[in-house]
């Protein structure tokens, strides 16, 4: 690989490391300023004063803050997120179980958002101020404006309850045996194991929540891509490409789109983080067994460790997504490799 690209990559990874440390600090602070007493929670509702103090010592909550912080960080470094009070399992195990379902949902939603948002953005830019452009504008505005839980319920009413084409909620029928995990992503595993029936069933379960989750993302990709394409199509280099007789399709799909994709990529990175956190609503509506549902049920139970774990995972995802976006920037834009 290009040496400059490697250097660029290393700089970005170092920056991400610093951001990760900030995220860890932030979750620690939030846990410590939260208005409940974790020792009282751990000791149970009927615990006496001495039992609470015992729990406080057991959990190390009587130690000075910097010691607690050090323990928190070193636990995290070993993948130890603490123990859920409600389930009694370690939060790390729970996350490993629920996260793939969320990841699968978000990946599919992002795929839908890109597959529809980018081409429609290009089309609207080419048809600027014509009826196609107006139509996609209405589409995009509704995508941003519709509350996801309401839109989810609407789709359930229409396609599941009304037409009966798709199941209402869940990830797979209770009667169906999920494929042996390889990646943990159910659809991918079903494909890898060649279980077509399971794949089709999984698809029928995931399609509604994925559409709901993808809608706002698709809308913002569409609008940003349209604006950037309008700009790029007006650029001097497009005029000279036309004058030199470059194939018109190639001008749109390579010369202009590549330039328009730079700002679009930034939106994709932001939207990925946003999507991860909005799974809380969508997973609740569709009873999707991911980290969003896990966070909601833990929060209702007053169980703090899982919520912190989910926050960390979502934050980590956000960072990884933005790291990938930064790397793609470096691949797309030769000027950045020298910055």
């Amino acid at each position: 690989m290009d040496r400059r690209l490697t250097a660029y990559l290393l700089r970005r990874v170092a920056l991400a490391g610093i951001m990760l440390f900030g995220l860890v600090c932030l979750t620690f602070v939030i846990a410590n300023v939260a208005p409940n007493d974790p020792a009282a929670l751990a000791a149970g509702p009927d615990a006496g004063r001495s039992q609470i103090e015992q729990a406080r010592r057991d959990y190390g909550l009587d130690r000075p803050l910097h010691e607690q912080f050090w323990r928190y960080v070193s636990d995290l470094a070993q993948g130890e997120f603490g123990r859920s009070i409600a389930t009694g399992r370690s939060v790390g195990q729970d996350l490993a179980r629920y996260f793939p379902a969320t990841l699968e949902l978000c990946l599919l939603a992002m795929l839908i958002g890109l597959a529809i948002g980018v081409p429609l953005g290009v089309l609207s830019a080419l048809m600027k101020d014509r009826w196609v452009d107006h139509l996609t504008r209405i589409f995009a505005v509704s995508g941003i404006a519709l509350p996801p839980f309401w839109f989810g319920l609407l789709l359930q009413l229409g396609f599941a309850t009304g037409l009966g084409w798709l199941p209402t909620s869940g990830r797979l029928s209770v009667m169906t045996e999920p494929p042996d995990p390889i990646t943990g992503l159910l659809l991918t595993d079903a494909l890898l194991r060649g279980q077509w029936g399971v794949f089709r069933e999984g698809l029928s379960y995931i399609v509604l929540p994925a559409i709901v989750l993808s809608f706002p993302c698709m809308a913002s990709i569409l609008r940003v891509n349209r604006a950037e394409m309008v700009e790029a199509l007006r650029a001097d280099y497009v005029m000279s490409a036309q004058a030199h007789g470059v194939n018109p399709w190639r001008i749109v799909c390579v010369h202009a789109l590549r330039n328009a994709m730079l700002p679009t990529l930034a939106i994709i990175g932001l939207r990925w983080g946003w999507m991860m956190s909005s799974t809380v609503l969508v997973e609740t509506v569709f009873d999707w067994p991911g980290i969003g549902l896990y966070a909601v049920s833990s929060a209702i139970a007053g169980d703090f460790k899982p919520v912190m774990g989910v926050t960390l995972i979502v934050g980590l995802n956000f960072m990884v997504a933005n790291l990938i976006v930064d790397l793609l920037y470096g691949v797309l834009d030769p000027r950045l490799r020298e910055g």
Binding site: D236, Y237, S240, N259, P334
Partner: peptide
């Protein structure tokens, strides 16, 4: 302006 009439990314 040859700077703006060449595509910066290609």
């Amino acid at each position: 302006d040859p700077a703006s009439y060449l595509n910066p990314l290609l």
